[in-house]
Simulated scan of single mutants.
Amino acid sequence: MPRHGRSRLWPLAALLALPLALAGCTGPVEVDVPELPDADRAACAAFAADLPDTLADEERVDIEPADAPAAAYGDPAIVVRCGVARPEGFDLTAACESADGVGYYIPDEQYDDQGLDLTLTAAGYRPRVEVSIPARYRPNAGPAAMAALAPLVKRHLTLVDDCA
C-alpha cells in the first residue's frame, strides 16, 4: 500500500519542481547585431569564431541571433560584442587599462564603484569590441576578460588609435 501512495505523489512532486528547474533556464541571451561594412563584418566574424568556450571562469551560453558577432558567458551573462560604436566619453586623451598590449576604455564612474556593471571597450581598434560584465563578477572578471581577449583583438582587428 505505501508503494501505491508514493507513486501518486511522484507526479505531483515533479510538477511542483518544474518551475524551479525552469527558473535557471533563461534561454538565449539577446544581442544587438550592428550594421557593419563588409570588411568589419568579416573581421568580427573571424573574431567571434575564435572566442573561447569559457571567459572569466564562466561557461559560454547560447545567444540570439546565433550568428551575431558576439558571445555570452554565465548567468547573468558576460557579453562580448564586436562592431560596437565608439563609447561615450572616449577620445584620444582617455585613460585606458592595458592587457597584453591591448588598451580597454572603461568609463570613469565604473573604476571605483564595484557595485556598477563594467563595460570594457577595445576602443582603439576597428572594428571595436565591447565586453559587458555584470557587477556580480567584479573585481576579477574584468582583468580576466581583458587578458583572454587581447590576443584575439590583436589577431583579428586593426589598431587605429592607441588607447593606453
Rank of each mutant, 00 (worst) to 15 (best):
A85P: 08
A85V: 11
A94K: 01
Y104E: 02
I78Y: 09
R81G: 08
Y73D: 09
A122I: 08
A147N: 12
V33E: 08
Y125A: 04
V153S: 00
E35D: 15
G83Y: 00
F47T: 02
L51Q: 09
A68G: 06
D75R: 15
V61C: 12
E30Y: 04
E130N: 12
E64C: 00
R128A: 12
P28C: 04
D91S: 06
T93R: 10
L51N: 02
G89H: 04
D108L: 07
A122E: 08
Y125G: 01
P134T: 07
R81N: 09
D40L: 00
V31W: 03
M146G: 05
A123E: 03
E109T: 10
C96N: 07
V102S: 02
V33A: 06
G83T: 00
R60N: 13
A150T: 03
A46S: 15
Y105E: 01
A46Q: 13
Y104A: 10
V131W: 04
N140S: 13
E59K: 14
A68D: 03
T121G: 12
A39K: 14
G115C: 09
G89C: 05
D38W: 00
A99F: 04
L152M: 14
A48S: 11
L120K: 03
N140K: 14
G83I: 00
P107L: 03
V31M: 06
L116D: 06
A42E: 13
P107G: 03
P34N: 07
D117R: 05
P151R: 03
A122T: 09
A45D: 14
G124P: 00
P107Q: 06
E58P: 07
T119P: 05
A148P: 02
V79T: 15
L152Y: 03
E97A: 15
D50Q: 10
T121L: 12
C163V: 06
Q110T: 05
Y73N: 09
T158A: 12
E109L: 12
T93A: 13
A46D: 15
P76D: 09
A147H: 13
L159T: 07
A23F: 13
K154A: 13
A49T: 01
T119E: 12
G27V: 10
P65A: 10
A135S: 15
V33P: 01
V80M: 10
A48D: 02
T54G: 08
D38E: 14
A147S: 15
A56E: 10
A95H: 13
A71Q: 09
R128L: 06
G89K: 05
A150W: 01
A49R: 11
R136G: 10
E30T: 15
E88P: 06
P37K: 03
V131D: 05
M146V: 06
Y105W: 09
P87H: 07
D57M: 10
Y137A: 07
V61G: 11
E58A: 14
Y73M: 11
L36C: 01
P143S: 11
Y137S: 07
E88R: 15
A77I: 08
A144M: 12
L36K: 01
R60A: 14
E58T: 11
G115D: 11
A99Q: 05
E59F: 12
D117M: 05
T93P: 00
A45G: 14
P65S: 09
D38K: 15
V129W: 11
D57I: 04
P143M: 12
V31A: 05
D113Y: 07
L149N: 04
P134W: 06
T26F: 10
A95Q: 14
F47A: 04
